[in-house]
Amino acid sequence: MSSTEFLEGLKNEFPGAITKIDIGYGQKFAEFSSNAAASIFNVCSTNERGRFDLLEDLLAYDSGDDIVLVYNLYSTLLNHRVILKTSLHRKEPSILTATTVWLAALSYEKEIAELFGVRFKNHTTEIPFLLPKDWQGFPMRKDYVYPGGYSGIAHGSGVERRKR
């Protein structure tokens, strides 16, 4: 239960930044505002009751209104985990990179930057990871419109399919 204590402590330390604490599905969630990302990442990795030294997963989803980032943190020293969530405006989503604290975030952030258009400040590289270099748009967003084609190849077979 030490991660619950840790989250309570975090909320007392950053009363404005931590907006919500939730326990459900056997997991502990905390929602934080993206402005306080730097200090929250540092506290999570260094705090005596937290000591989250492993970023297990960093994922993103489009909720329709916002782009939501989900950080799954695990402490190999204290054997507990916590899930941090933050919502970013879909017009210009940007957040500080987590690579300075957890290096594992490097390729996750590259992928999210490409597929969701999130800008990670102070990220080391901006080389495209999965998509071609001149790809337009962010494919994993809900308002993404499929391309008519790419480099002279028309998209689709031109055969009408039955609507789902």
Binding site: L131, Y146, S157, R161
Partner: peptide, 11 residues
């Protein structure tokens, strides 16, 4: 094919 993927060539 088509609407099912944005990144795959249809054949």
């Amino acid at each position: 094919e088509g609407e099912f993927s944005y990144s795959t060539v249809s054949g």
